[in-house]
Computed example of a mutant assay.
Amino acid sequence: MSDALHLGAGAGARAVCVLVHGRGQSPEEMQAHILARLDVPDVAFVLPRAATGSWYAAKAVDPLTAETRSALAASLDALAADVAAARDAHPGRPLLLAGFSQGACLSLEYAFSGQPTPDALAALTGCRVGVRADTRDRDLAPGLPVYLTGSDGDSWIPVTAFAEAAVELGQGRARLRADLFPGRAHEVSDAEVAMVGAMLADLAAGGTTRMAAPR
């Protein structure tokens, strides 16, 4: 049974956001650091919880091992179950899949894995898991709106990994906006929070997210 945290609008929600925490974090930290800075009253939030506090043990930029592949597959199954439950609880409502750091990486892997596609994706400080030489899924739905962010000052996701993710998203024909924030620490900036809020507002209004918030 999922231990996800459910917050925000109830049965009357006009959009849903599944927000995935990073390594060593919790849904409660996502609530404090991101949701508390949003003003989207018509949105229901589902915040999945990693059983051990992390979705896999390796760094995202480490070559994939059998152990990492196994942990990643289990975490993707858990995320898919939470996404499906969110869809079932709010039928017909658009869904934004979002994540920070390791949660952003897991969300990207979900999008590339051929799982049922969200209506939009926000990968805040994210990249693909593994290295370019690894065999990885590339089953991305063409036209998926994706907001990808990074920083040259981030200790976990190098600029090169951010850039490689942007290339793969482009090759998969995502409708991509990629923002690099020079000097930003390993955190979610006000501009990133504003973009997530704008994406959710667009979805709740019944339109396609424009990803038009200023940098």
Rank of each mutant, 00 (worst) to 15 (best):
A36Q: 14
A78T: 10
R69P: 02
Q102P: 03
A80N: 09
G53H: 02
D154R: 12
E168P: 01
A81R: 13
L5F: 12
D82K: 12
A111P: 05
M30Y: 11
G114V: 05
F112T: 05
T209L: 05
E67Q: 14
G153S: 10
Y56N: 07
A84C: 13
L7F: 08
H186A: 04
A122T: 02
P41Y: 14
A141R: 15
F162L: 12
S107F: 09
V16P: 10
E187N: 13
L38W: 00
P116A: 09
Q102M: 11
E67F: 08
A44T: 04
L169V: 00
S101K: 05
A50V: 09
G10R: 05
A98F: 00
A9H: 09
R132D: 15
A174S: 08
A194P: 12
A198Q: 14
S26A: 14
R69K: 15
E29P: 10
T125A: 14
A9R: 09
L38T: 09
A141M: 13
M211F: 03
Q171N: 13
L95S: 10
I34A: 07
W55E: 11
A165T: 02
A133P: 02
R37C: 03
Q115I: 11
A178T: 05
V43A: 09
P158I: 02
Q25R: 15
G170M: 06
A13I: 01
L5P: 12
Y147C: 02
R49N: 04
T209K: 01
A111I: 00
D202Y: 00
V18Q: 01
G103Q: 11
L148H: 01
F45G: 02
G53P: 07
R128F: 06
A44V: 02
M199I: 07
P118K: 13
G143F: 02
A60V: 10
E168F: 01
D39Q: 11
A120Q: 02
M211V: 00
